[in-house]
Design a protein around this nucleic acid. Sequence first.
DNA 1: ACGATTCTATATCGATCGCTAGAGATATGT
DNA 2: ACATATCTCTAGCGATCGATATAGAATCGT
Lengths: 198, 198
Amino acid sequence: MRTGRPRSFDRDEALERAVTVFWQHGYDATSVSLLTGALGIGAPSLYAAFGDKKKLFFEALDRYNRTYGSFTVRALAEEPDARAAVERLLHDASVAYTRPDRPPGCLLITAATNCSPQSADVAARLREIRVQARTALQQKIAGAVRASSVPAGTDSRALAAFYAAVLQGMSAQARDGAARADLRHIADAALLAWPATA
Amino acid sequence: MRTGRPRSFDRDEALERAVTVFWQHGYDATSVSLLTGALGIGAPSLYAAFGDKKKLFFEALDRYNRTYGSFTVRALAEEPDARAAVERLLHDASVAYTRPDRPPGCLLITAATNCSPQSADVAARLREIRVQARTALQQKIAGAVRASSVPAGTDSRALAAFYAAVLQGMSAQARDGAARADLRHIADAALLAWPATA
DNA sequence: ACGATTCTATATCGATCGCTAGAGATATGT
DNA sequence: ACATATCTCTAGCGATCGATATAGAATCGT
């Protein structure tokens, strides 16, 4: 059927605003009243359109991964060389984490670092995504080791953990007020730790 | 005077437990009922002994800085050489962030990364401490540049930001389940980025 | 022993949390 | 025009938040 009074707001636009609010304050600290205020709608409209707060967060998370957070998978997928992929990953992060019109840092990293026990599943989901991204990086490096574009004996797990930590550190520094150039310097310093191809 | 019924619990022990709870869940997600449960006392006793939740947190923060978090200032103060200080800083962090009987990571870094607007002052205080630590590291490096134990032209601000980011990344990795050896590997990789003394 | 003082235990307080029932508003199908 | 369906608005649900009033328990000084 699908008749009746039409929705008075743009669902996609509301979801985009929800992304920003969750990005800024994290999952727990984002109250429903904060959301309704930012989205410009009433609570019943929010629940009718998105289910509940948790479903809205996960939908916003998906949207984030497809937009602002997609540079990570793109770097790994589009750059054949592992070194070039990591370089692009770090440089893109320095840009993505310091967009003037967006909250600083990374939603995946900051949205549920400390949360109440009843939202432990949200934290677990975000951690799952981070671990998955770190594993993808590790496999990229391991492939480069097999292809001898990276020195044999390189610990792909350790190297992936290092660059994952650098990304998380860059997000934290951005949250602490670091400028885009600061993050770029951090990225460049981290690239000096890439195993020498001597 | 100081007469009347004596306190039925050890205030220091209660404060130590409060450190652990705030370390684990962060400031916002730690409810007063969670605290009274962990401390084994009633709410009125907590308020009589510590003032309110915020004062208790700041007192727990001071205690953390004097105990678990003191390795940072010690490394900078006790190691004359800047390179050795950073090496010790990172290695000590890999141990401090993965104590089996303590929450993973660093309280200063994780306790207020995402918090509600009404506890913005808590987040600001923690950020202040982090920035101060980063500045101390920067000055240590700048002194080494002047003493020529680090190559001239080294950007002390950028290098300090890099190692600050690595520490924050190590804390995040510990929170994500990384083992002590994993953090050690991250620390070792980060040390490869130290400016060559050629 | 007894008053003075301080702590603890019970039972809340008002505010806010995530969430929703019920009534009125606005569209479509006939 | 009218029935039907969906959305929006107001108001408020039970639960939990941080914090406290009150009364009884425990200790000290005299």
